[in-house]
């Protein structure tokens, strides 16, 4: 059953919807950056960004009346945005391990990166 958004919640829905994606991107960015630079404090910021995403998803769920089976969408978004960067990172590491040595691997930065992985 669909319950449309109330007039007073229009802005909340648009804003929280945008925040879901923006905070999701920030979480991904900080997550990857933290792993790349081996800086654990960036990971704290990453999970803070995920915290914003968490609040945005719940706000969106409340304002858009995502009740009943629609609640599964809220769960799917919370779990999906949390785990997807982990999965993509693992894929990044795995795909770069199969890379043949190339000219760019001789760059000092690439060696530094490979040693961190």
């Amino acid at each position: 059953m669909l319950e449309p958004v109330e007039l007073k919640d229009f802005f909340i829905v648009f804003f929280s919807g945008a925040m879901v994606i923006m905070a999701g991107a920030l979480y991904s960015l900080l997550f990857a950056w933290s792993k790349l630079q081996s800086k654990p404090w960036l990971m704290v910021l990453a999970y803070l960004a995920y915290g914003i995403l968490f609040i945005a998803v719940l706000t969106l769920g409340s304002a858009a009346h995502l009740h009943g089976y629609w609640w599964w969408l809220v769960i799917a978004m919370l779990v999906g945005y949390l785990l997807a960067p982990h999965g993509i990172w693992k894929l990044c590491v795995a795909t770069h391990l199969i890379q043949k040595p190339t000219q760019t691997d001789d760059l000092p930065h690439s060696k530094k990166l490979q040693s961190k992985l």
Binding site: I21, G24, A25, S28, L29, F31, A32, W33, L36, Y81, A84, P85, G87, I88, W89, L91, C92
Partner: peptide, 8 residues
């Protein structure tokens, strides 16, 4: 969004 990880 997850592809941001790959870009970084």
């Amino acid at each position: 969004v997850a592809m941001v990880v790959h870009a970084v």
